[in-house]
């Protein structure tokens, strides 16, 4: 097995270019690559399109921020595609002020769009969203008289994800509910950078235990920041 380069968080952030679409793993900051997020905040790259389950938290009163909320705070996104922004008041403020475009997508549809992109599908039919605003502009297809929406795959230029453990080949193991969107995003971006708490030698992870096969991962970063 070929070893994948271990790079610094700053080098990882440097691979994300102005205008890129960026997938970020995590669910309300649980399982997000916090080390790379902080480096990207420092770098200040702008005009990104975020694809993430949510925009984590930002309480404007207390000033408390988590996860990708730091990048929202830095106004690094021109567009945000997410299922939930309810705990991030700054995202809502930017959306209402017309500063950032926010596209809300049902969570299961977002997950499946990422999965579809990573597994070579042209889209999928889901009953979710029929009869709601989500249906607008989409093709409705009847299957056995039941209406479904045609949803299209969603790819990104770069995905930054977080694992509990990686081997040098890039095989990944996630922990508990920190798995969430990470293994899906690993399959759906041109460049995949995985941040891992522990990076071990090839052979030290039982092949039975691997969640994300090594071939999806381009670069590894050692996690230094674990807090949200």
């Amino acid at each position: 097995m070929i070893e994948k380069p271990i790079i610094s968080a700053a080098e990882a952030a440097g691979k994300i270019r102005e205008g890129d679409s960026l997938m970020v793993g995590g669910f309300l900051a649980c399982g997000s690559p916090h080390t790379i997020i902080q480096a990207l905040k420092e770098k200040g790259t702008k005009n990104l399109t975020l694809i993430c389950n949510d925009t984590a938290a930002h309480d404007l009163k207390s000033g408390k921020i988590t996860g990708v909320g730091y990048l929202v705070q830095g106004k690094q996104f021109k567009k945000i595609i997410a299922s939930h922004i309810g705990l991030n008041q700054e995202t809502q403020r930017q959306m209402n002020a017309g500063e950032t475009v926010v596209e809300l997508v049902p969570q299961g549809t977002l997950a499946e769009q990422v999965r579809a992109a990573g597994s070579g599908l042209g889209g999928f039919l889901t009953p979710t969203g029929v009869g709601t605003e989500v249906e607008k502009g989409k093709q409705v297809i009847l299957v056995n008289d039941r209406p479904f929406l045609l949803e299209l795959p969603l790819k990104a230029d770069v995905a930054i994800i977080k694992a509990k453990k990686a081997d040098r080949a890039g095989n990944l193991v996630y922990n508990a509910t920190a798995r969430n969107f990470n293994p899906l995003m690993a399959t759906a971006a041109n460049l995949v950078i995985a941040e891992a708490e522990e990076i071990v030698e090839i052979g030290e992870i039982d092949p039975n235990e691997v969640h994300t096969p090594s071939i999806f991962v381009d670069f590894l970063v050692k996690a230094e920041r674990l807090e949200w």
């Binding site: 399982g31 938290a57 920190a178 798995r179």
Partner: peptide, 28 residues
Amino acid sequence: ENRDLTNAGSAPVTVQIGGCFFDSATSF
């Protein structure tokens, strides 16, 4: 509390014996 183990509101939770974890596509 385990920062990798939360509910859908990001509050710390536990997993029951016999429970399991899966990715978001499987979940939905």
